[in-house]
Design a protein around this nucleic acid. Structure first.
Length: 826
DNA sequence: GCCAACGTTGGC
DNA sequence: GCCAACGTTGGC
């Protein structure tokens, strides 16, 4: 049977690509041969054997309702791996890419290979090929994903002549907009339209809203199985067993599944049906569901579909997925559409008059039909929704979630009196009906802060996908709209020059309330009200840990052992503990704990400086042992818990150490407040030295982020910004015994004429004055000097060329000081 | 136990 | 299509 391809005209896809592709057919016969070779191999790898004229075995599989949430097998097995193959052919490295894929597939089969850790394919130097379309020096690279459901898919990267790696079209535009117009540039292929063959982009069906079609091996049609069709391009895609496949029929009705068909999202069909006139050929929008691409006139021809049940072809009828023989009664297009649009499903608001109505009217069409149905079949369980009870203000899922968040936010304000929290008001009817989602959503959101469930795979017990619940929307982190740009998660972001591996939210913007649930409930509010916030969002544990209790399943929101410093964000207003990896491994910690366990534990921030050590001690006791804030000891010089920091109300209780040791199942920290007694940095200063009280005070408070006080020869105190990611990196405040001070930046003194000195006393005698100075310093950053050639790159230290009278410190919104600016103009 | 890596989803 | 970032997995 001769089969011709049907254009999968999807909105936004220019059909001139299609035409162009046809004109290029003969030129690309070699490419098609390559495709055939590769697809044949892919088929073998995938265990799929498909011969010309024979139906794919996949076709015989139960239909995959592609308007339902897809199971992975529905599209992954074929489409995703094949997708990468097509992309490889699209690019300039046609043959090479195919080979690379094969290698990848082979590697994949081996156990223990796994994805690269230390160096990703993107980072690897090999595989880059010249991309002359963008200009000299530009390189392009295809990276094939090698794991999970995206295995075989490819990402396209570019590297500028300067070595900057570009991961998206947007980034690319930023780089070349001065010199190259990318309007007609195909990011995937690395070519401009008109340069060569342009395959129609494949698009994944990851969302029904995306109006995408599902590629499959059968999509390889011309390349994979049919030499006869090698002269045509498969531009459409087909799900393995589409319920809505359409093809141009060139032969008699047959029970043979065609090697290539084209599918259309139902939504497209709905929209298409609304158009009376098809768009002109070449327009980017398809107004009708079926168009031939090779009909000379461009006029639609008779279209046929494959019945999803018997796989016979039948004349296309809008909204129908089966032939007339298989079509059940009442199988109207609208019925299908309504049933298969889960992502647009709306939920009753639960508040309107209709929702509150608990009694069926008995008069509306729905009620009458329901009664009739009951008469005909008393066992019928079909729920009939009285039209008088149909929600007047249905909400989309996300709106429902927001509602619940709003409810929580208001409730959260009265956290201290948890008994005041009222349950969401929903009508009985609402609860009884299918609309329990709202209630679920509310309770689920509340559970975030009151010991809710976790780690159950993204679905609740009712099969409803969980919403993302890591944001209360009210806390300081949630309210913050700008990334700090300096935490590790920010540094990972492409916009900050990162490689997008971590893909996590800025640490400063992570929900504080969400994290607080990892503390003992009785103290959550107290800790939070006192400004304690975990530094890192909690981890969920799955897999072999999934049987652990929910509480214990949260094990860590600390910092990796080797990145403790980097994890502390810049925060002008925040006050944080200093984290020092080595000090966290102080022998005073329980010897049973591994270094990794130690440093991977919790780090806490105190948002506001505090003097009341009792608060902090109480907080410490409140934290579960396995989430103890490791940074605390550093700031508690010479003040052990037993010596006076016993929490309020704890008189008569067992000593802290013993209390901790009771819990043998969790790591414990003993004598945590005594470690500073042996601090070698303190040993260098006489206990009667005038700086000692100030040092002790500084150690007993929480300094701004990564400022740390040390004693140096003199003796004198130095407050050092320890984070090299801070704008104040390598900045030191030197406090002399006379309490006079000066500031140095990168070893250079900040001139006494600097404005910073004006707003602070000439002597720093109290912690308050010091903290004020530190916080003031955080408003500045280091002058970038004369040029930007050495401007900030990641976390590297910057030593730009400067004016002799450089101010060194300029407000962070200013690039350089006036002196350097003047020199720049010269 | 831990986390880097990345698939995935939803917003825009 | 891009982006942010949540959720999960597999290797160490």
């Amino acid at each position: 049977m001769e089969t011709e391809e049907v254009s999968a005209e999807v909105p936004t896809e220019p059909t001139n690509e299609v035409k162009e592709a046809n004109t290029q057919e003969s030129k690309e016969s070699t490419a098609n041969t390559d495709i055939q070779d590769y697809v044949t191999e892919k088929n073998k790898e995938g265990g799929v054997t498909e011969t010309e004229g024979e139906p794919s075995k996949d076709i015989d599989k139960p239909p995959c309702d592609w308007l339902e949430p897809l199971e992975e097998d529905c599209d992954d097995v074929d489409s995703q791996s094949f997708d990468g193959e097509v992309e490889s052919l699209v690019g300039s490295e046609r043959s090479g890419s195919v080979v690379s894929i094969r290698k990848t597939a082979g590697q994949r089969s081996g156990r223990g290979v796994g994805r690269p850790r230390k160096r990703t394919q993107f980072e690897a130097d090999e595989g880059w090929e010249d991309c002359p379309s963008l200009g000299e020096g530009w390189k392009r690279k295809l990276v094939f994903r090698r794991s999970g459901t995206s295995e075989g898919r490819s990402d396209t990267y570019y590297m500028s002549p300067r070595g900057h790696k570009v991961r998206s079209r947007v980034e690319l535009v930023k780089h070349v907009k001065q010199s190259v117009d990318l309007t007609n540039f195909n990011f995937k292929t690395g070519q401009f339209i008109g340069e060569g063959l342009h395959w129609r982009k494949r698009r994944k069906l990851d969302s029904l809203q995306a109006n995408s079609s599902v590629p499959s091996l059968t999509d390889a049609g011309p390349a994979a199985g049919s030499p006869a069709s090698s002269t045509s391009l498969s531009l459409g895609t087909v799900p393995m067993s589409s319920s809505y496949s359409i093809q141009k029929d060139t032969g008699p009705e047959t029970n043979t599944a065609l090697p290539s068909t084209t599918t259309y999202p139902i939504d497209d069909l709905i929209e298409d049906s609304a158009h009376s006139n098809p768009p002109p050929v070449g327009s980017s929008v398809s107004a009708a569901p079926v168009r031939t691409i090779n009909g000379a006139s461009g006029e639609p021809q008779n279209m046929f579909c494959v019945c999803e049940k018997c796989h016979k072809t039948y004349t296309f009828e809008e909204g129908q997925t089966m032939c007339q023989n298989c079509r059940p009664e009442g199988n109207t297009s609208l019925a299908i559409i309504r049933r298969r649009k889960p992502y647009k499903k709306r939920f009753p608001c639960g508040r309107c008059r209709a929702c509150r109505n608990t009694v069926d009217c008995g008069k509306c069409v729905s009620c009458k039909n329901g009664l009739l149905r009951l008469r005909l079949n008393k066992n019928s369980r079909k729920v009939v929704k009285c039209r008088k009870r149909k929600c007047l203000h249905p909400k989309r899922r996300d709106r429902v979630v927001k509602t619940s968040e709003w409810q929580f936010s208001n409730m959260a304000e009265s956290l201290s009196t948890a008994s005041n929290i009222s349950q969401p008001t929903v009508s009985d009817d609402f609860e009884e009906s299918q609309s329990s989602y709202l209630q679920y959503s509310d309770s689920e959101d509340l559970s975030v802060f009151f010991g809710g469930n976790d780690g159950d795979g993204g679905l609740d017990e009712m099969g409803v996908p969980k919403v993302r619940r890591r944001s209360c929307g009210k806390c300081k982190g949630c309210v913050l709209r700008t990334d700090c740009g300096s935490c590790d998660f920010c540094m990972d972001k492409p916009k900050f020059g990162g490689s997008n591996k971590k893909r996590q939210k800025c640490r400063l913007r992570q929900c504080q309330r969400e994290a607080m649930k990892h503390l003992l409930p009785m103290d959550e509010e107290m800790l939070f009200s006192q400004g304690w916030v975990p530094r890192r969002r909690p981890r969920y544990t799955y897999g072999h840990n999934r049987n652990r209790s929910k509480k214990l399943s949260y094990l860590n929101f600390g910092v990796p052992a080797n990145k403790a410093e980097a994890y502390v964000p810049k925060a002008s207003s925040g006050v944080a503990q200093v984290v020092n990896r080595d000090r966290l491994l102080h022998p005073n910690f329980n010897g049973k704990m591994s270094p990794q366990l130690h440093t991977g534990r919790v780090e806490m921030i105190k948002e506001n400086g505090f003097q009341d050590s009792g608060i902090s001690s109480r907080a410490l006791l409140s934290v579960r042992p396995d989430v103890l804030p490791m940074a605390i000891p550093i700031n508690y010089a010479g003040t052990s818990l037993r010596e006076g920091n016993r929490p309020q109300g704890s008189a008569g209780q067992e000593p802290y150490q013993e209390e901790q040791q009771e819990d043998v199942s969790c790591p414990s920290i003993t004598q945590i407040f005594s470690m500073a007694d042996s601090d070698p940095m303190i040993q260098g200063i006489d206990s009667n030295h005038e700086l000692m009280p100030l040092l002790t005070s500084l150690r007993s408070i929480v300094l701004p982020v990564l400022w740390f006080c040390v004693v140096v020869d003199g003796p004198r105190l130095q407050l050092i910004q320890c984070s090299k990611r801070s704008t104040m990196a390598d900045t030191t405040i030197h406090i002399e015994p006379s309490f006079h001070y000066h500031i140095s930046i990168q070893g250079q003194p900040l001139l006494p004429t600097h404005r910073l000195y004006d707003s602070h006393p000439s002597r720093l005698t109290t912690t308050k004055e010091i903290v004020a100075l530190l916080e003031d310093l955080e408003r500045y950053w280091v002058c970038q000097g004369l040029g930007n050639k050495n401007s900030r790159k990641g976390s590297e230290a910057v030593f730009p060329e400067r004016a002799a009278t450089c101010d060194f410190l300029v407000f962070s919104e200013t690039e350089c000081c006036e002196k350097c600016k003047a020199l720049r103009r010269v």
